[in-house]
Simulated assay, not measured.
Amino acid sequence: MLSQSELLQFSRHIILPEIDIQGQEAIKSSHVLIIGLGGLGSPAAMYLAAAGVGEMTVVDNDLVETSNLQRQIIHQTNTVGKSKTESARAAIESLSPYTKVNTISEKASREVLGQFNSSNLTLALDCTDNFESRFLINEWSVANQIPLVSATAVAFSGQLAVFNRKQEDACYHCLYSNMDLPEGDCTDQGILSPVVGTMGSLQATEALKLILELEQPNGSFLLKYESLKTTFQKFKVPKDPNCSVCS
């Protein structure tokens, strides 16, 4: 049940016929796991909190550094040197008193992910910056049938992938297992700060669509964004019948 103050705060959601009060209550009842509180996780967490997500668990083992502030908008100059999870918790709680924030100041691992399954989690956002973590998160997502929204960004481009986790859908391993993995990250190639913000915001949008069960494309998909050309390209990700993870 939404309180009077929640009805006021989320009124611009509620007037959308696709959301209404029932949809806002679904957002309030959701539990979202955000793995990584860098340039992707920062806007994603802020928008999901602003949207009224009732519970959020944030995972990151890093401390806030001055070089993070160019793009990791959830952190502030006065949180440099503090853990990213505590910095994020303070920002989220100041934005949305309705969101319960759980923090795990560890690197994503099988033990950390093992705490969550489809009975206590709605969906997960992969906001990490390395393939080891992404493959691990994907395996856990498939094993527990938890929807996964993944994104990357480097230099002037970004990618978004959504895996609904239906049995017939592809997984992250289907997408990258048989192709050369892209090299480099923002540490050695740099990143235009709004690009990573764009991808994190898209993650939040797709997460809310999953929570609300709004129209979704059939199967998993990949979206590529090129900021210099101002172009988006969308591709369906076919399921690999020989995938060692989801088949």
Score class of each variant (00 low, 15 high):
182 P>A: 10
113 L>E: 11
125 L>P: 09
101 V>K: 03
41 G>N: 08
11 S>V: 13
13 H>Q: 14
88 A>W: 11
92 I>D: 02
103 T>H: 05
61 N>V: 10
3 S>R: 11
21 I>M: 12
174 C>I: 03
225 Y>Q: 03
159 Q>Y: 05
85 T>I: 13
192 L>Q: 10
15 I>L: 10
219 G>M: 06
220 S>H: 04
180 D>G: 07
151 A>K: 03
5 S>L: 08
191 I>V: 14
49 A>E: 00
180 D>T: 14
23 G>P: 08
24 Q>F: 05
155 A>W: 00
191 I>Y: 06
204 A>Q: 03
164 N>H: 15
196 V>E: 07
86 E>G: 00
108 A>S: 14
11 S>Q: 12
214 L>V: 00
17 P>A: 04
156 F>L: 14
115 Q>D: 15
211 I>H: 11
241 P>D: 00
131 F>V: 11
87 S>W: 09
51 A>I: 02
244 S>W: 06
126 D>S: 08
74 I>P: 02
24 Q>V: 09
203 Q>L: 07
26 A>C: 09
245 V>C: 09
125 L>M: 15
196 V>K: 08
9 Q>L: 14
73 I>A: 03
135 F>W: 04
37 L>N: 13
107 K>G: 04
230 T>I: 06
1 M>W: 08
241 P>Q: 08
84 K>I: 10
160 L>D: 00
36 G>Y: 06
9 Q>T: 14
113 L>K: 01
31 H>T: 12
92 I>G: 08
51 A>Q: 02
133 S>D: 15
216 Q>E: 09
6 E>V: 09
34 I>C: 10
227 S>G: 05
101 V>H: 04
240 D>F: 03
42 S>N: 07
167 Q>C: 00
7 L>M: 12
145 Q>P: 03
103 T>R: 14
214 L>D: 00
185 D>F: 00
225 Y>I: 09
245 V>H: 07
4 Q>H: 09
91 A>Q: 15
233 Q>R: 11
1 M>C: 11
110 R>P: 13
135 F>N: 09
152 T>V: 12
154 V>A: 01
57 T>L: 05
6 E>F: 07
117 N>V: 12
18 E>R: 10
122 T>H: 00
235 F>H: 12
69 L>D: 05
148 L>C: 04
166 K>A: 09
214 L>Q: 10
200 G>F: 02
46 M>I: 07
144 N>D: 01
128 T>Y: 04
20 D>Y: 00
117 N>Q: 12
79 T>C: 04
34 I>Y: 07
35 I>P: 14
245 V>P: 06
152 T>D: 11
47 Y>P: 05
57 T>W: 11
78 N>E: 14
27 I>D: 01
37 L>T: 03
142 V>C: 02
106 E>S: 08
112 V>Q: 05
108 A>D: 08
11 S>I: 13
191 I>M: 10
156 F>Y: 15
205 T>D: 10
196 V>Y: 06
108 A>W: 02
164 N>P: 15
44 A>T: 13
108 A>G: 04
193 S>W: 02
176 Y>I: 02
62 D>C: 04
218 N>K: 15
19 I>P: 04
8 L>R: 07
80 V>F: 06
172 Y>F: 15
119 S>Y: 11
139 E>S: 14
42 S>R: 08
49 A>T: 00
